[in-house]
Write a protein that binds this DNA or RNA. Structure first.
Length: 389
RNA sequence: GGGGGUGUACUCAAGCAGUCAACGAGGGCAGACUGUAAAUCUGCUGGCCGAACGGCCUACGUAGGUGCAAAUCCUACCGCCCCCA
């Protein structure tokens, strides 16, 4: 089996790439000859990859189809340092155990876009586990403090009088050294990784005399607000392993301004026209939700959740398969025990606000003897349905 | 090493002895309106009890102390920032 390229190299750059170094022309030239080795690195700082990562995955897949070799580098060591990118406070380093847990499902998410046999996997703990302190110092001598301070994110922190940990200075260095060890022809990463990738470029040039190109991909940002659409630290993102209905629903809940960026950066389908989006925002968004859900869950599930979504939200029907929960003595105890509401107090608040309904009848008072009975349908807020076992 | 400053809830940020579970903003949640969109309006946003008024408990870096009463005063410790060396 072979992967078929969906786009030519220039098309790929138009669609997914923001910047490339040393230049776009040079990148085209290099990529015109098959057999190049490129890598994408990611730190397992959480259990999920999200739609923002899918841009890189799609690009990589197409590069494979053009005959290049891809290495996926898992930063199991770098995750222990904590990338300062985009944080205005120090990131808490993760323990080895947390990292292992995060890694468990990581690859399965990658395989949904790029089948297993098409790329190599490396872990950077492989070389860092044995790194000695003198090697660290030697490595550090290749970069100056000024170079590090030039980074806007550090400038920002200096201005805000926030801490910059010395270890955070080390991060780009350590990530950059990955390039040296892998001796690659190029690196792919999000535009926010440009600084780190360029440090790697310098190191690779200096230490192994190899000219690594850097391809920085476009980030998923809301064009109206400029805000990142997938924010892992704020827990606001669409995970590649979200259930089909979650994925579909979350896409439908995105603002209209997100349609085009998502379509462009997270799919390979030809783009809808701006007029289409403006004239038919809802329909276009439905198409988008279907396309993306299909990529991760297949045609059948995507169609199923679309139908379900329509019946629940457009027609106000109940979902067909509602998860069941155990009844407790009172409604409040039931929803708290099931983990749907964090505390009794919060549950009381929700009821006072009219957010909870049993069998479509809004519960008005939390003290009423509305003990849940088997078969009752409990609705909490707009999206959560549970059935009493 | 010396001097000055600072540490408040998810974030920013007021408060500087009682009216503080703590102003305000952002975020989040819920309701109305909708296209589960955005914008807008309204309410909520520590826990537990209570129909409600309210009550109790835990919380303002940590540990002690003063006092009827402490986020607010004192002492020590810890963290962070700035200036000088």
């Amino acid at each position: 089996m072979k992967l078929a390229p969906k786009f030519t190299i220039p098309e790929l750059f138009d669609r997914y790439v923001k910047n490339s170094f040393p230049s776009k022309e040079k990148a085209f030239e290099i990529l015109a000859q098959p057999g190049r080795t490129l890598y994408w690195g990611t730190d397992p700082t959480g259990p999920n990859l999200h739609l923002g990562h899918s841009t890189n995955l799609l690009l990589l897949k197409n590069l494979i189809a053009h005959g290049h070799h891809i290495i996926l580098l898992i930063g199991d060591f770098t995750a222990q340092i904590g990338d300062p990118t985009d944080r205005d406070a120090t990131r808490r380093p993760l323990s080895e155990k947390e990292i292992k847990e995060n890694m468990r499902d990581y690859l399965d998410q990658v395989y949904k876009i790029i089948p297993k046999k098409f790329f190599k996997i490396e872990y950077n703990s492989k070389w860092y586990k044995k790194f000695s302190f003198s090697e660290v110092i030697k490595l550090a001598s290749h970069v100056s403090v000024q170079q590090m301070l030039a980074r806007d994110m550090f400038q920002e922190r200096i201005k805000k009088e926030r801490t910059i940990g010395l270890h955070e200075f080390l991060y780009p260095l350590v990530q950059g050294y990955d390039s040296v060890m892998l001796k690659v022809d190029g690196e792919i990463g999000g535009n926010d990784q440009t600084f780190n990738m360029l440090v790697g470029r310098d190191l690779e040039k200096e230490l192994v005399r190899k000219d690594k190109m850097v391809i920085a991909t476009l980030l998923l940002e809301d064009p109206t607000t400029g805000k990142k659409m997938m924010n892992k630290s704020e827990g606001q993102y669409i995970s590649l392993r979200d259930s089909a209905s979650d994925m579909y629903g979350k896409i439908m809940a995105m603002p209209d301004s997100a349609i085009l960026p998502l379509w462009k950066l997270c799919t390979e389908e030809s783009l809808p026209s701006q007029e289409n989006i403006s004239a038919q925002p809802k329909t276009t968004k439905e198409q988008l939700a279907l396309i993306i859900t299909r990529m991760y869950h297949g045609e059948k599930d995507a169609q199923r959740v679309r139908k379900q979504f329509r019946s629940i939200f457009s027609e106000g029907q109940l979902p067909t398969d509602i998860p069941e929960i155990e009844a407790k003595e009172t409604l409040l105890q039931t929803v708290v025990a099931a983990g749907l509401v964090p505390s009794i107090s919060e549950g009381k608040r929700l009821i006072n606000q009219g957010a909870i309904a049993i069998n479509d009848i809004v519960v008005k008072r939390w003290d009423q003897p509305n003990a849940p009975r088997s078969g009752d349908i409990i609705k909490i807020g707009p999206h959560t349905f549970r059935k009493i076992r």
